[in-house]
Structure formats: C-alpha cells, structure tokens
Design a protein around this nucleic acid. Sequence first.
RNA 1: GCCGAAGUGGUGAAAUUGGCAAACACGCAGCACUCAAAAUGCUGUGGGAGCAAUCCCUUGUGGGUUCAAGUCCCACCUUCGGCACCA
Length: 799
Amino acid sequence: MKYEPKNFEKKWQEIWEKENAFKTDETGAKPKCYILDMFPYPSGVGLHVGHFKGYVATDILSRLRRMQGYNVLHPMGWDAFGLPAENYAIRTGTHPEIITKENVKNIKRQMKDAGLSFDWSREIDTTDPDYYKWTQFIFLKMFEKGLAYEANMPINWCPSCKTGLANEEVVNGECERCGTPVEQRNIRQWVLKITKYADRLLDDLEGLDWPEKIKEMQKNWIGRSEGGEIIFKVDGKDVKIFTTRPDTLFGCTYIVLAPENKLVLEFKDRISNWDEVEEYLSKTKLKTERERISEVKDKTGVELLGIKAINPINGKEIPVFVADYVLAHYGTGAVMAVPAHDERDYEFANKFNLEIIEVIKGGDVSKEAYIGEGALINSDDFNGLSSNVAKERIIEFLEEKGLAKKQINYKLRDWIFSRQRYWGEPIPLIHCPKCGIVPVPFRELPLILPKVESYEPTGTGESPLANIDEWVNVKCPICNEDAKRETNTMPQWAGSCWYYLRFIDPKNKKEIVNKKDEEHFMPVDLYVGGAEHAVLHLLYARFWHKFLYDINVVSEKEPFKKLRNVGLILAGDGQKMSKSKGNTVSSEDVINEYGVDALRVYEMFMGPFFDAIAWNTQGLKGVYRFLNRLWDFCYKCKDNNFESSKDILREENVLIKKVKEDLEGMKFNTAISAFMEFLNFAEEKENETSGRTIENVLRIFYPFAPHMTEELWKVFQNENYIHEENFPNYDEALIQKDVMELVVQINGKVRDKIEVSANLSKEELEKIALNSEKVIKWIEGKEIKKMIFIPPKLISIVI
RNA sequence: GCCGAAGUGGUGAAAUUGGCAAACACGCAGCACUCAAAAUGCUGUGGGAGCAAUCCCUUGUGGGUUCAAGUCCCACCUUCGGCACCA
C-alpha cells in the first residue's frame, strides 16, 4: 500500500467526531490538563498555514496528555467583536453578526480539516448574548466595587476609527489598528481602575512560567518607581512634584509645570507675561502626540514671570517654567529640575541659561549631566552621604515639616474602557437625571445590542446606538422616571478577559462558571499565542482575573500558569504573510497535495517553535518523503513476529526517551529529527525490526501525525484506536550500549577514537588510550603532565 | 538613548548545558532507473594542503579563564524585537 493521505485523513476526522474522542470528561477522576490557544478573531480571509503553527503544537501536546491519562481541556472559540466586521457592515450594510457567523463557519471548517482535537462541544463566541451577558455582569460588578468610573478627561482619540483608545492601543502616537496619528480629546469615558491592581500585577509576575521578555514588557509597562512627593511653595500655594531622586534636591534650580497643569491658570493674575504663556499653552494644545515625541531633542518652554518657587530644602527662590517636556498625566504634572543630574533638565537649562549646580560626585557636569548615583556635595548637612541614604534622609527631614512624603508612581494608567462604536458589548448602565448612574439590574442581562440603521461612527463621542430613541430612552430602574441608556460599547479586549473561564462551563445559565469545575480546571496549564498581546490582552485578562479572585469567583490569583509564544511562519520571501501582500500559503492547497499530517509535521520541523521562520515548500516535500518512507517501513515490518534485535531495541528506547523529553520542552523540531534518525538506522535492519517496535513508534508518532498512525494502527488489525493507547515508557537499561567509542584528546585536540567495551574501568581505559598507535605517535618523547578522565568516554592527556 | 533576545555551512538548524562543532533536513553535484522528464534510490557535500594515510583552519570581531569554550568572563561590532521626555 502506498501512502495516500487523501484516502483516510477525512475518514479519521469523522471517526474522531463520531466517537467524541476529544470530549473533556465532566467527572474529575483523572488529573486535569488545560491547554489553551489564544482564540482567534474570525477574519473574513480565513486561516493560512501560518495560523496553524500554534494550533498544531497545542494539539500535539493535548494528544500526548490524553495518552498519558490526563483529562485534557482543549477548547476553541471566537473573539468576534471587532472593527473588521463593523467596517464591512459600514461598507455593505450587512449586519456584523451575519458576516461573523459566516467567517466562523469557514474557519471552523478549516480547523476541522486540519484534524485539530478541540472539544467543540465547548465552543464559545464573545458576541453571543449568552456569553456577553457575563461580560456585562463582570463590568457591573466592577462598577459596584467602584472600579469602573466615568471621567471627562483628555484621552487618545483616533480620528479615523472615531473612537477613544486605551493607552495600550496607541503605538508610537498612532492608532494600533489603522495607523492614523492619535489626537487628544476631552471625551466622557468609562474607565477601569487597573492602577489599583498595579502592585499585584507586578508582584505576581514573579511566580509565572512565562517568557522573560513578556514579563519584562509588563514590568516596564506598569513602570513602578519609588520616590517622594515634595512640596514647593509658589506664591503661597503648594506645588507638589514627584521625584525618584530626592538626593539631588540641593541641585534643583527651577521647577517646571506641564502645560495642562491646572495650577498654571491659578497663577494667572500674578504672571506678568501671561500673553506669552497663553500663546505657549495653546500652541502645545495643537500639537499631536506625534509631534511632541518628534521634538524631544528641542526643548521649548516659557518662564512664568512674576512668581517664584521656594526650594524647601534650602529656602532658595527659583524660577518657575511651563514646558511641554513635562507630562501632565504622570506624577503630579510638575517636576523639580536638577540640570546637573538629569539629561532633559540639562538640555533645558542650557537653552534657557539656567544655573547648573553639581550635587552628586561622579561626573563632569560642565560637559554633560551625571545621572548616576554617588556622594553628595554642595548639600549642607547632607554632604558626604551616598545617594541611597540621602534619598531617605531628605524625605524624612522634609516630612517632619510637612513638606514631603514617600511616594510610588506608576506609568500604568487607568484603562479607557468605552468605545464610540457599534460592534461591541453595550455598557449596561442608565443615566437618570434624578438617581445618577444606575446599573441595569442583573436579572435584565444580557442587555442586547440592538439593530441600527447605520453602523457609521458618529464622531460626536456617542456610538451609533445613540440614534435609536426607543432603545436609548428607558425608565430608571430605581425611580421609574425617564432616563437614558449609556450608548458607548466595550472595547475589543473585554470578551477575551475571561473567556478561558467560560470554556470550563460554557452553558451555565446561572453563573460565570461553576465553582467546583473552576477549581478543578484552573489555572490554564499551557497558554500558546503570539507575542503581540504582551501588554494588551495578557495584562487586561490578568487584571480581570484578579478582580474575579477578589469577588470569589475564581480560586487562583493568576489565570495562565505557563505561557509560550509561537514564532511566526513568514512567507517564502522572509516577509510577514498577509493577504494584501499576496504572499500567503493556503493550508487547503497544502492539505490537498500532501495531506494534513505532512503539514503538521513540517510546521513543527521547520525550526524552533518560538522562532520566526520562512515557509519553504521544499522542506515540506522533505517531510512528505519521510512520511512515505516511514509508512512503507511500517508495512514491511508489521508482521515481523519476533523480538527486535538489541540495536533496534536500543534505538527504539532512545527514541521514546528523546521524544518524551523534547515534547515537554516543546522542542518539536528535534523530536521529529529523532524519528528520522531512527528510520535511517532501522531501514537497513528491516529483518531485525519487530512489529512490536513498529507499534511503539506509531504510538509516539501519533500526536504528530494522528491520521497516518490511526490508519496504520488499524492496518495492524488492532481492535482499538491508537488515540486510546498509552504513551509508551522507555527502559533506561536497554539504552546502554555495550560497545562505545573512547575519545582521546591530547592537549585539547582529538587524536584518536577507539572502540571499547562499555564496562571497562578508568584504569583499563587509560591503558588502552596510552597503547593506541596514534596516541603514541603524539606523546612519544614527551612528558605526560596530567590525565583527565571524563566519564563515560573521554580521556584528555596533557603533555 | 534605555531594556531584552540573538549572531554556527549555500539554506532551516542541532550540539545531553564546559567534553568528538555542523545531528536532522533542504539545496547542490555525480550515478542508477527512464527514449526523456518527474518521482524514487544510492554516493558525496564547512574551508584549505595532499595520490593517499593524514594534517592545519573554522561557531560575528578582539582578548581572557580552562586539560578542554559555540557554550563561561571582559571589550567591541551587527541584526531583530520592545519601550521611549515616565522626572
């Protein structure tokens, strides 16, 4: 029989489905294993070969764990709210729900064609009212606990998407989705207090088995800095500043307020050059985030003439500036400037001819700012102290006078949570003129997203929902007077913040997730997806999870115990695969020509799982050749009704060990090369290879190539299915060789390799080494200084 | 600028964590099969010297530690990711 994957791959997919082969047990007798993929947005263009890499990896591990006796939870669903479907709706007038349903159907078929072993009975869709009922529920719980608040503040606004954005969605001053430069706008927003969780989000990273890179990115994003808040008196008013370097306070020669800082207006009457100041303020207002970033090197600002600040440490009068290099949204929106020890202040001071006082020894402040730490100088009583000590002492000293306190600041800002768009979860709140903001009662959830005439964003700060009078106008649930619904919707990220919980108990009508099952299945044992969500989804989901922990819905502090990032499959030209570039490789084409198993094995063999590697059809053909050879070899040996030779038995056990270990480390590429090595070795020993050896090889190859191995298993006339088999164990004793190669090095260079029996003692081996002709040639007439024996098989001679 | 990861054949890469560098595969060359091609199989394939056995060189660059370095240490170069006026 020839290897013809077309003849049986579909068949096996149908059998698995019929047999419910991958259904997760409801009972908890077996140990659990939760293996999760980041669920996709059901895009209209479907999946290409690149999308499968992560899914194949988790599929392999899920199949492995099932063989190892685990109750595996391996589900799939759809993160289906989002802009593409909405933009399509705007263009065509088709409701996003319709196009989303079609896309889901298509991608689900593609996944099934790829033989992925999901438990489809747990499929979820974030746009399903039965699902988003609970997204709304969690939001209301947050509202109840004061974690969701309404704010009128300047936020990032995308003029093209016509919606506000979260900080995390702005990349280099541009909208993450469409690349349009982001503007600042004052818009009424719903905001989630993620900052309240900053410390826990930071501290709990410690115990996670995640890529260091991702943890580092989250740490940087949260950006905790410890320092102090110090009060400068200005014209009788307190100006608070935040600094991480209180030790440099004696070097502070001016202070700077951010243009947006409200204090500037409070000083208006005392400022003699108000016209100039006002002009500067309006100029900065017009600048985009982008322009401000690009002007980093050229500092601008205006002194507020007529007022002075008092440096609290020495009572000195110093000038006050307003300058846009100080950010309104970080700290207090005001800084103390120490030009001698801060690059930005140094630059600014030079431009405006301000005093530079060195207070930390260690650099040459006539040339550049010295930002390192060191001993204090020019600092009165604090002279000679080290920065570290002085930081504490100076704050303590001022604290007694009520002029300072210790303070911790974060770069992380609260999460702008409302979107002025249509295709998202409606925020279940009601604005009542009498009662204020009133939550929609829980029993009325889900608050269904109504049909609209036009999906076009309004640009007014309200979503298209605002145009539906009969939906917007409601009675207040408390006083029953006329009230209006909140018309903003939730952002794309809302549904994915807790979906991993719903897979555990997807049909529960009464609660988010059944507590007992949650305790059984959580946390996620392995979470696989792209690195692009490092600070978006992964930070948001951790935040929600911690909240759910606080309200006793979940029992673990962290949702994802182990995270691994799948490396991209690039197009043959080394570029990212994308429909618009026309360089995608269709999985359908590959499956038609070479079969699913070849696609799976090739994607795992390409290179390290975590690396980005370019697609190469020749490589795929190589894998296909290998599958053919393995297939033929299995046929040849299947009826060999004898014990395998010692050599074969050894290689068989070496293979089992290697594959098991490599799978644990997700080193799929070397696991597959081990199969190839085994076949290269065994092919010549066809009549030494027993049918029993072949069965074991099939068992361990099953997770990689499930269709082919199921088929061969049946050919062997086994009564059961291979997916019901156990993963075989190896016997360490059988791995030992009785002959081995002794390597002899002289002065670090390999000079001879000698076949020796494996059970010789150190002394015997040394004797053999010294008697070797080649070795004698090198050591003749030389003095042997040292002989080092490295078990089991290396001797190093120093002459 | 700061943080992080990485530099190994023509290509994707491997190397039990300090112990035979280049496993496995792709590609290429030669041969076999074929009228021919494809497919398949066999042989060879880091560089240099030699008929040969054999020897020398080689993991971005330069230095160091060690009997032994792709792996550890120091300096530098390059590439890719992330952050970026965060006080």
